[in-house]
């Protein structure tokens, strides 16, 4: 995982479908599908434009004000790592 200045964006070969409160992602090359939880689905919407991790953490805390800094950072990192692992996200250094 890179530092806080890295930007993250959606790759072109990932298709999204909004189903209920969740987003289903489909990777055209790996032919893998991933269901995001409602919070992950909300973060995914923010990634329509490239974002840095601190920006996402900040947005997450404004949506969930009770969320402590450490928890917000940990949740956001886990979300980004998971998407990167599945090739559903691109990191721009």
């Amino acid at each position: 995982m890179s530092g806080n200045h890295a930007r993250y964006r959606r790759p072109h070969n990932v298709e999204e479908s909004k189903v209920g409160e969740r987003v289903v992602l489909y990777h055209h090359d790996s032919r893998e599908a991933l269901v995001l939880n409602p919070t992950g689905s909300w973060l995914w919407q923010l990634l329509a434009t490239s974002q840095t991790k601190p920006t996402l953490v900040e947005q997450l805390q404004s949506r969930f004000p009770f969320l402590k800094d450490e928890q917000a950072m940990s949740d956001t990192s886990a979300f980004l790592d998971d998407l990167l692992k599945h090739g559903m996200l691109v990191e721009e250094k």
């Binding site: 298709e15 479908s17 909004k18 209920g20 289903v24 489909y26 055209h28 599908a33």
Partner: peptide
């Protein structure tokens, strides 16, 4: 069809 197209086609039903 490819999985992506299948997901797209069935989404309206699941919704």
């Amino acid at each position: 069809v490819q999985l992506g197209e299948a997901i797209r086609s069935i989404s309206p039903l699941a919704n």
